[in-house]
């Protein structure tokens, strides 16, 4: 079963750095639960253009941002929230949850998966959905069925404060997907944990 969309692309900061707005109340029949777009979640950005070799971008949620126009308006309210819901529901819809999504690969039209910088570009309003477990497994397995993390340099080059915890979260997920390869994943995990936890603390 394909996951329901959790949001849509609203902006990008670079070729691989997209902003996804999570569907709120009223925008979809089943607004996603916060656990569906947690930190380190793998998502697919469905591309709308037909005839392109790429079907979807594979992205990783690396950041979350809450938008609230009401923030800072400290004056007295003329109408309480219960009334606003009735008289001007659009005003409430102005609050939004934004996700920072980094594109780390793509799915092509024949169902092949690729890690790395995608050539295709997502457009505004492209739908974003959670990647399925089987897709996740396929995306990370190489021809020999061993896990691959070829997008790691991409993440490290992203130079974001949350990259190290992101990688640790990804490796932990892969550990469950590839129990037989846990030993080599542990080497990588220890290395990242050492550099991000122990060395800065020393």
């Amino acid at each position: 079963m394909t996951h329901l969309p959790i949001g849509k692309i609203v902006k990008s900061n670079s070729h691989i750095d997209y902003v996804c707005q999570v569907f709120g109340q009223g925008e979809t029949l089943h607004p996603p639960a916060p656990s569906a777009y947690g930190f380190g979640s793998f998502v697919a950005v469905e591309l709308e253009t037909a005839g392109e070799p790429s079907r979807a971008l594979v992205g990783l949620v690396y950041n979350t941002l809450l938008m609230n126009p009401e923030f800072g308006a400290l004056g007295p309210r003329l109408s309480p929230r219960s009334e606003v819901e009735i008289f001007s529901p659009d005003y409430l819809a102005e609050t939004a949850t934004l996700l920072g999504v980094i594109a780390i690969g793509w799915l092509d039209v024949v169902g092949q998966v690729h890690q790395g910088v995608p050539a295709a570009v997502a457009t505004v309003n492209c739908l974003v959905r959670r990647l399925e477990r089987t897709e996740l497994l396929t995306f990370h397995a190489d021809d020999a069925g061993q896990p691959q993390l070829r997008y790691t340099p991409l993440l490290l080059a992203h130079n974001h404060a949350l990259v190290a915890p992101l990688l640790l979260a990804v490796i932990d997920q892969l550990g469950e997907l590839f129990p037989l390869s846990r030993r080599r994943l542990t080497v990588m995990r220890n290395n990242i944990a050492w550099k991000s936890i122990v060395q800065p603390a020393g």
Partner: peptide, 8 residues
């Protein structure tokens, strides 16, 4: 180290 999250 374990206190900080490095449990290996």
């Amino acid at each position: 180290a374990a206190l900080l999250g490095y449990e290996s």
